[in-house]
Design a protein around this nucleic acid. Structure first.
Length: 578
RNA sequence: GCUCCGGUGGUACAGUGGAUAGCACGGCCCCCUCCUAAGGGGCAGGUCGCAGGUUCGAUUCCUGCCCGGAGCGCCA
């Protein structure tokens, strides 16, 4: 149990006893202002109202009850009844010190007591094109969530649902067929974006080419060996592009996580047949549809989920249904998470509804579309560069690393060239990732080079800098950073604030596992780093003596450990110096 | 028309049924004889889109409206 839960349980019991009711909620929350203590209980006023009692009197009774609890003597300095009936809890410095000191020998938080099988579907780029800035959010946020569930000890299955199947591939194959046989495909495909654009141009300009392209789609789906061979070569090269980017960005996705759309090909026909057997299918304008009464179209009529086109082809709804069936029935997922753009929320609502109706997803399996907002330009329109293109992910990373390189040369010229490059690479990538992770994923957000690649304030470099400063203390003093420095009761305000924040790591991670909003972890780490910076200014570590010095070194260690762990969950590497 | 997401200081964003609404950038002013100034401190800047309602208490929940974005039958 974390600190908040412990306090909430204790105060709720006290509230039960003081009121004579049962199941009371103390509503303990971290206090927002130090003058109101460390935590506050807000449940007294609502209960007093319900029972028709005076909230101040009830509050006083709760405080009296709580003080009889042996726990109270151990962890609270005092309880203060304030305002209309708030109970402010001031924690004991000795308690904070002892709790922190105990962390030296433990994980920062225990693994989940009830591990689940969780499938997470993220990144999932379209292999026909090159990954651009729009793909960043799902990939980075998904990776942070995946890392968090791993850390919590869940059975996590990553799936990269590559878009490797569909009409564009007919066009690309037709274009590949036109290339001179002598040409090297790797070179031709070194820039997927221009290759795609060139193919699209041919497609739009030449009807004969377009016909060829459409014919290729049919041939591909029928398993024509020549088409398949070209398709495989294209896919392999495109996957290499993605993997290079994942490696550069430090994304934990690899070849073993690839379960592309084409994987479900052979499951589509049986799926549609099954829906038919279940009587869920109706024909509409030649297409096979599942009608859902809860969704209406523009004219107020029931909205269909089309699972088979009038020409017999299958659609992405069909593939997604097959994927749910596979994940629930074969992988035995208890929770399936989809990191996909918010624009597809209706699609997922429909697909989830059909999956429930058809029994592909049992009621106890949670299906969650973790949607995220669109990247906008400064004009408030979906993001494009002046030329109408979007920015390639490789170029974004390159620019960020370059800016970081210039900065590190200026800030730390005594560092060797290789180290400077290393620092620039880490800082550059970290800044890009943090810029995306630190925002609530639900809202659209505005892309801006200078905001995204800022290295001051609430940014990744700030967190990395805090970490590097700590490491530098140990390095400078020639101290073993892994030795055991006992933490005693924090004496100064800055030490106490830092100590309390360190103890709240597990609260943060638990909320993150619930809501899948990594920006909560970003905020926590930013505040932690901020508390450390203030501690650093106010409390000399190496100049202190005896137990005080040990304790401050211990606080430094735990701060470093928590920062490193938290950043690792976000997929951000730390640096020893910068 | 219907559905979903958003509207918070000049800008970009947090946040929550609780006590004076935070942070960063930008502006102005301080702080390196002291563990990295990618830092710390301070000042200025807000009727939390508008109007009702629920509540002891609403920026947060509900309803209506306004504004921005997105989606709504055979693309993914």
């Amino acid at each position: 149990m974390n600190l908040k839960q412990t306090l909430d349980a204790a105060l709720s019991t006290a509230l039960d006893r003081a009121s004579g009711e049962s199941g009371c909620q103390a509503l303990v929350a971290p206090a927002k202002n130090p003058q109101f203590g460390d935590y506050q209980a807000n449940g007294v006023m609502a209960l007093a109202k319900r029972l028709g009692r005076n909230p101040r009197e009830l509050g006083a009774a709760v405080v009296a009850q709580f003080e009889r609890d042996p726990l109270a003597a151990r962890l609270a300095d005092k309880l203060e009844l304030a305002g209309p009936g708030f109970i402010n809890i001031f924690l004991k410095a000795e308690f904070l010190g002892a709790e922190l000191d105990a962390l030296h020998e433990q994980r920062l938080m225990p693994p989940s007591a009830a591990p689940q099988t969780i499938v997470i579907d993220y990144s999932s780029p379209n292999l026909a094109k090159e990954m651009h800035v729009g793909h960043l959010r799902g990939t980075i946020i998904g990776d942070a969530i995946a890392r968090t569930f791993d850390y919590l000890g869940h059975h996590l299955i990553r799936q990269n649902h590559f878009g490797d199947w569909g009409t564009q591939f007919g066009m690309l194959i037709a274009y590949m067929e036109e290339l001179p046989r002598s040409g090297d495909l790797h070179t031709e495909l070194s820039d997927l974006e221009s290759f795609y654009r060139a193919a699209k141009q041919r497609f739009d300009a030449d009807p004969a080419f377009a016909t060829l392209a459409r014919a290729n789609v049919v041939k591909l789906q029928a398993g024509d060996p020549e088409c398949l061979a070209l398709w495989r070569r294209f896919i392999a090269i495109s996957i290499e592009h993605c993997q290079a980017l994942y490696d550069k960005l430090g994304i934990t996705l690899g070849p073993e996580h690839i379960v592309p759309e084409s994987f479900y090909n052979e499951r589509l026909e049986p799926l549609v047949a099954d829906l038919k057997t279940q009587g869920l299918l109706s024909e509409s304008d030649g297409a096979e549809c599942v009608f859902l009464d809860e969704f209406k179209n523009k004219n107020g009529e029931p909205l269909p989920v089309i699972v088979q086109k009038s020409d017999g082809g299958y659609l992405y709804a069909t593939t997604d249904l097959a994927a749910i069936r596979y994940r629930c029935q074969e992988l035995h997922a208890e929770r399936v998470l989809y990191l996909v753009d918010a624009r597809q929320s209706l699609h997922f609502q429909q697909v989830f509804a059909v999956a429930r109706k058809a029994g592909y997803a049992p009621p106890e399996c949670q299906l969650e579309h973790l949607s995220y907002g669109t990247m906008m330009g400064k004009d408030g329109k979906p993001f494009k560069t002046r030329s109408g293109d979007t920015i390639k992910l490789v170029d974004l990373c390159g620019e960020s690393i370059e800016r970081a390189h210039a900065l590190v040369r200026e800030k730390n010229p005594q560092l060797g060239d290789a180290e400077q490059r290393q620092v620039a690479a880490t800082v550059g990538i970290a800044a890009v990732k943090y810029a995306d992770l630190s925002k609530n994923r639900n809202s659209d957000y505005i892309f801006d080079w200078d905001t995204m690649l800022s290295f001051e304030g609430n940014t990744a470099p700030y967190l990395l800098y805090a970490y590097a400063r700590i490491r530098s203390i140990f390095r400078r003093a020639g101290l073993d950073p892994d030795a055991r420095y006992p933490i005693s009761a924090p004496a100064q305000a800055e030490e106490k604030t830092l100590a309390l924040k360190l103890l709240q790591f597990s609260e943060t991670i638990e909320t993150l596992a619930q809501d899948c909003l990594p920006n909560q972890l970003c905020l926590y780490l930013y505040e932690l780093a901020g508390h450390f910076m203030k501690f650093y200014e106010a409390c000399p570590v190496l100049k202190a003596e005896g137990k005080e010095r040990d304790s401050r070194l211990g606080l430094c260690q735990l701060s470093a450990r928590t920062l490193r762990q938290g950043l690792a969950l976000l997929g951000i590497d730390t640096l020893e110096q910068m």
